[in-house]
């Protein structure tokens, strides 16, 4: 048995790949549900009902999808340029911390709400950027592989958040709980639905998807980033400034992850704790791959993950199946997606 590259991978196969991958992941996860003694069909029915069946469920799913779209985009733009940013989790936490930190400056309280919101989003993005520029700098200057450094910096970032919310940024009114001072009232994102947690951050995330698509498909920067990823040597010969392009990609990627954190704090929590993110950063990697690194596809992939996470919460209460099944399914779909992309590109010959 051997594999032969298809000369023209068909469009149909490329579109079907993620669907096949998700179905395969659902089948394997279904086996795990069956082993645990529940009916998988019923479990998936309950997951869908939990995620879509009510106004509250739907709003929770969209709320959950918001940071996932942004971390998915962060991974997608970086991976396309072969910048292995696995540090989305840490960048998200620093972005989250930046918003209340900016709020501690006295003048912020007197600014009008739109300006406060914009400033908080901007510092969140910048905080994320800085955390990714460190490992990129190490790669460009010392040749240190960024995979391990971005992974390690995730732990450093969360410890830094812990340090700040127990120290300089501790909320004195939180009865000793380690949580940060709240973001200023004027920086709270407006709600999209009454009496739910759904907030305007979703619109920002959707706008970012379109903006990233435009950047990648219609600008010189997008072309250079793609060339740098596909073949850095050829790109350099063609006059692409590799270092500068990677720095721009890192700013975009880290900025998106930082933005995810700032938005989560300004839209949902209002303050920072060390359990702000149920590994949104790592899920972003899965989402980017499921979307085949397509910024518009990221929206669909993020929705899939959000449905699994929100639905599994309510399913696990009804069937006493651990809600970790959502994490298992999402992780499995990454592996099945890799195989699906492979099968779309290669044919099997005996």
């Amino acid at each position: 048995m051997r594999f032969e590259r298809r000369d023209h991978p068909s469009r149909l196969l490329t579109v079907l790949a993620p669907i096949g991958a998700i179905l395969a992941a659902l089948v394997v996860a279904g086996l795990l549900i069956a082993i645990a003694g529940a009916n998988p069909i019923r479990a998936y029915g309950l997951i869908l009902k939990g995620a879509f069946g009510s106004r509250l469920g739907l709003s929770e799913t969209l709320t959950r999808a918001t940071p996932l779209i942004l971390t998915g985009l962060a991974a997608a733009v970086a991976f396309r340029a072969r910048l292995w940013n696995i540090g989305g989790e840490g960048q998200l936490y620093l972005g989250a911390l930046a918003a209340p930190a900016l709020g501690m400056i006295p003048i912020m309280a007197s600014l009008p709400a739109p300006i406060t919101i914009l400033l908080c989003l901007a510092v969140g993005a910048i905080a994320g950027m800085i955390l990714l520029l460190i490992p990129l700098g190490l790669r460009l200057r010392f040749g240190v592989d960024e995979v391990v450094t971005t992974l390690l910096l995730n732990f450093v970032a969360v410890l830094f958040v812990s340090l700040m919310i127990e120290g300089a940024m501790k909320d004195p009114l939180a009865f000793g709980w380690p949580q940060s001072v709240p973001v200023p009232d004027s920086a709270i994102l407006p709600k999209l639905m009454e009496r739910t947690r759904l907030h305007a951050g979703l619109l920002i995330a959707l706008a970012m998807s379109v903006a990233v698509w435009w950047l990648q498909a219609r600008t010189v920067f997008g072309m250079r980033a793609r060339a740098a990823g596909l073949n850095p040597r050829a790109a350099a010969f063609a006059g692409v400034p590799l270092g500068r392009t990677l720095i721009a990609v890192a700013c975009l990627s880290g900025g998106l992850a930082g933005l995810a954190g700032a938005i989560e704090v300004m839209g949902v929590k209002g303050y920072v704790t060390t359990d702000l993110s149920p590994s949104y950063g790592y899920s972003g990697i899965v989402i980017a791959m499921l979307a085949n690194l397509n910024p518009i596809g990221v929206i669909g992939a993020a929705l899939f993950s959000a449905v699994m996470f929100v639905g599994a919460d309510s399913m696990s209460r009804a069937l006493s199946i651990p809600s970790y099944i959502a994490d298992v399914t999402v992780a499995l779909s990454l592996l099945t997606m890799l195989v699906a992309i492979f099968l779309a590109q290669y044919r099997i010959r005996r």
Partner: peptide
């Protein structure tokens, strides 16, 4: 990374 995500979530499950 996929193996890490799968193996750890499977362990927790």
């Amino acid at each position: 990374l996929g193996i890490t995500l799968f193996a750890s979530s499977f362990s927790y499950y």
